[in-house]
């Protein structure tokens, strides 16, 4: 399975947010989508999922345009993991995961024992079987996000879209949730993940795509794509990218702000002096 955007434009009504981008996604790879707030990441994702109409160009799945596909047809191929959310009703975790089977269930039917088995396997794969009978609204944010990944897995998609899956998760939960992303790619799924930290793209993706003001600034392996210069263009801040080794002797790249933090309090003191003299 291969997904391709050809000269894709999207936006809301008259407003064009993403302007003619082309990109290919192959099964087994994780593509990290980086960009500032409002650069069009979410708009692009909503258009791929069929929540917004395509404004120009096309979205192709194995060469077929999905413009006229029903939501069930799309859902059988593309899974989606939203940002952490709390629904108003206290569904059980198993029911939430079973909702991933909806596109495979006939309109008047309910999940079959076979569907329950698939949902349980999905929970098992993420090591959260213990959550099966818990109430979704009462578990922790990190656990909820893992449940949403299980739901997407139960959907048996070939392409998985994640919209900042770790937004509003604490430090530990971010690592716990993201550690499963590569595992997903190993299951013959193509993953497109929008990230809000360049480090996440370095560690968890095979390819990084930088989106700047609705256009692709650059795309390629994270190492060669994410440079200090391009991050400056993207986010308007100066950063240094450094390589460090972790305890497992793996080399990782991290971004740190290039700024003399020690200078700031001095400046404010200087200013106070000026006021004193004035």
């Amino acid at each position: 399975m291969e997904m391709e955007f050809r000269n894709l434009s999207c936006g809301y009504g008259q407003r064009r947010v993403v302007d003619g981008i082309s990109l290919k996604l192959k099964v087994g790879e994780v593509v990290g989508l980086l960009g500032a707030n409002g650069c069009g990441k979410t708009t692009l994702i909503k258009t791929i999922l069929g929540l917004l109409p395509v404004q120009g160009g096309e979205v192709l799945l194995d060469g077929k345009n999905i413009r006229n596909w029903t939501s069930a047809q799309i859902a059988r191929v593309i899974g989606y993991i939203p940002q952490m959310h709390t629904p108003p009703f206290p569904f059980e975790v198993l029911d939430v995961v079973l909702m991933g089977r909806t596109a495979h269930i006939k309109p008047f039917s309910s999940p079959s024992p076979q569907d329950v088995k698939i949902a349980e396997q999905a929970l098992d794969m993420l090591n959260i079987s213990y959550l099966r009978d818990r109430v979704y609204t009462e578990i922790s944010g990190g656990e909820r996000q893992l449940v949403l990944i299980a739901r997407a897995l139960a959907q048996e998609p070939r392409i998985l879209i994640m919209d900042e899956p770790t937004a509003s998760l604490d430090f530990g939960n971010q690592i716990k949730v993201l550690s499963h992303v590569k595992q997903l790619a190993g299951m013959n799924i193509a993953v497109l993940m929008s990230c809000h930290f360049p480090e996440h793209a370095f560690i968890y993706s095979n390819r990084a795509v930088l989106l700047n003001e609705g256009k692709i600034l650059h795309s390629g392996t994270p190492g060669e794509t994410i440079t200090a210069e391009r991050l400056k263009t993207l986010y308007g801040v100066d950063v240094d990218i450094v390589s460090v080794k972790n305890r497992m002797n793996q080399e990782l790249r991290v971004c740190i702000p290039s700024r003399n933090f020690a200078l700031q309090p001095m400046q404010s003191m200087d200013r106070r002096k000026e006021y004193a003299f004035a």
């Binding site: 999922l49 929540l51 029903t70 059988r76 991933g100």
Partner: peptide
């Protein structure tokens, strides 16, 4: 939105 993404013609 979520119902649509899960395959329901909302």
């Amino acid at each position: 939105e979520e119902a649509r993404v899960l395959g329901i013609n909302t």
